[in-house]
Simulated scan of single mutants.
Amino acid sequence: MSPPPAADHPVTPLNELARAELAPAFSPLYRQIKGLILQGLQTGEWKAGEGIPSEVELAARFGVSQGTVRKAIDELAADNLLVRRQGKGTFVATHAEQQQQYRFLRLTPDAGAPASLGRQLLHCRRQRAPAWIAKLMHLRAGDPMIEIRRLLHSGGQPVVLDDIWLPGSLFKGLTTERLQEHRGPFYGLLETEFGVHMVRAQEKIRAVAAEEESAAPLQVTPGSPLLSVERLSFTYGDKPVELRRGLYNTTHHFYRNDLH
């Protein structure tokens, strides 16, 4: 017999879910459970780095078999939204974890193992969103926006010039001082202090020539070849919350991607 659900988490029968249209009627049962767990992540019921209830507890909560819950969790783990830890349970994935820190940054040295990149903040300022950024991020032109420019270093040499734009309404306390004080990964700061978790990203990559304005901080001559990487990052519910344009100096590095 399955154990009773926790008192603060009443069972949500699947017929109620169908009426609420939380999942399509034709969706496999494990996909419906996946959607319900994802809903808990979206609403902040389980925050980045926290453990979620066991498979047995979730099965009792949703009124399904443990195998159905396991299959739903397997997919969420494959999507890098959850992390299984042997003997400890299942946890909400966080960019603060060592294995997750550079999930969206694929720059790899020609020789040797990838090393942590040093960061140099050039500026952090508030502005009004120009029309082209607002369109990409589903905002209105003129909405408050935070613009961050920084350099990433490898072995003391600048390798990435990053321009980052964030919606001002989500990151009201983000300042130059806060960024300079933070020692962990950038996305880890956004998770812990602002509750915004980057779960996936889209990238556009092209070769460009360094212009004078970008050549100086990257310590290359104007006209040198660079890799331009434009990334749009999303939180739960496919909501865009970060736009980033990075210029990569690939003289001694390459851009690595694993295809599945």
Score class of each variant (00 low, 15 high):
Tyr102Cys: 06
Leu161Ser: 00
Val64Gly: 15
Val160Cys: 10
Val69Met: 09
Gln157Leu: 13
Leu152Met: 12
Gly173Pro: 00
Ala59Trp: 02
Pro167Met: 03
Cys124Gln: 14
Leu117Thr: 15
Ser169His: 08
Phe104Ile: 14
Arg149Glu: 12
Gln66Asn: 13
Met137Cys: 02
Phe104Arg: 09
Thr108Asp: 13
Trp165Ser: 10
Leu58Met: 10
Ile73Phe: 09
His123Leu: 12
Leu174Thr: 11
Asp143Glu: 14
Ala113Ser: 14
Ala111Met: 03
Thr90Phe: 05
Ala72Ile: 04
Asp143Ser: 11
Ser54Lys: 06
Gln127Tyr: 00
Phe171Pro: 04
Gln180Glu: 11
Lys88Trp: 02
Val69Gly: 01
Ile148Thr: 03
Asp79Glu: 05
Pro158Gln: 10
Leu170Cys: 07
Leu136Phe: 04
Glu75Arg: 08
Gly155Glu: 02
Glu181Asn: 06
Pro130Trp: 07
Ile73Leu: 12
Gly87Lys: 02
Ser154Lys: 11
Phe171Tyr: 13
Gly67Asp: 09
Arg178Glu: 13
Val160Ser: 06
Asn80Ile: 09
Arg84His: 14
Glu147His: 10
Asp143Ala: 15
Val64Ala: 15
Leu151Gly: 14
Arg70Leu: 07
Ala77Lys: 13
Leu121Asn: 04
Ala113Pro: 01
Gln101Asp: 01
Gly156Lys: 01
Glu147Pro: 04
Glu177Tyr: 04
Met145Ala: 10
Ala131Phe: 02
Arg70Cys: 10
Pro130Leu: 07
Gly118Pro: 04
Leu139Met: 15
Val64Glu: 11
Leu152Tyr: 13
Arg103Ala: 06
Cys124Asp: 01
His153Phe: 15
Arg85Lys: 14
Leu107Phe: 01
Ser154Asn: 06
Pro53Trp: 12
Arg106Lys: 04
Lys71Ser: 03
Asp110Ser: 06
Arg119Phe: 11
Leu81Met: 14
Leu170Tyr: 11
Leu161Asp: 03
Ala60Gln: 08
Ala59Phe: 03
Leu76Ser: 06
Gln100Asp: 05
Leu170Met: 05
Asp74Pro: 05
Ala72Asn: 09
Ile148Phe: 10
Thr90Glu: 05
Leu174Asn: 03
Thr94Asp: 02
Phe171Ala: 02
Arg119Met: 10
Ile73Gln: 11
Glu177Ala: 11
Val56Arg: 15
Leu76Met: 08
Gly142Tyr: 11
Trp165Gln: 11
Ala131Thr: 03
Gln101Lys: 14
His95Thr: 01
Phe91Lys: 09
Pro53Asn: 10
Val56Trp: 12
Phe104Glu: 04
Leu105Thr: 14
Trp132Ser: 09
Ile148His: 05
Val83Gln: 08
Glu147Met: 05
Ala111His: 08
Ser116Lys: 11
His153Asn: 13
Gly118Thr: 03
Pro144Thr: 13
Ala115Arg: 13
Ala113His: 08
Glu181Thr: 00
Val83His: 04
Leu107Asn: 02
Asp79Lys: 11
Glu75Gly: 03
Leu58Phe: 07
Asp110Pro: 00
Ala134Ile: 15
Ala131His: 08
Ala134Pro: 04
Ala96Cys: 15
Thr68Val: 12
Pro130Phe: 07
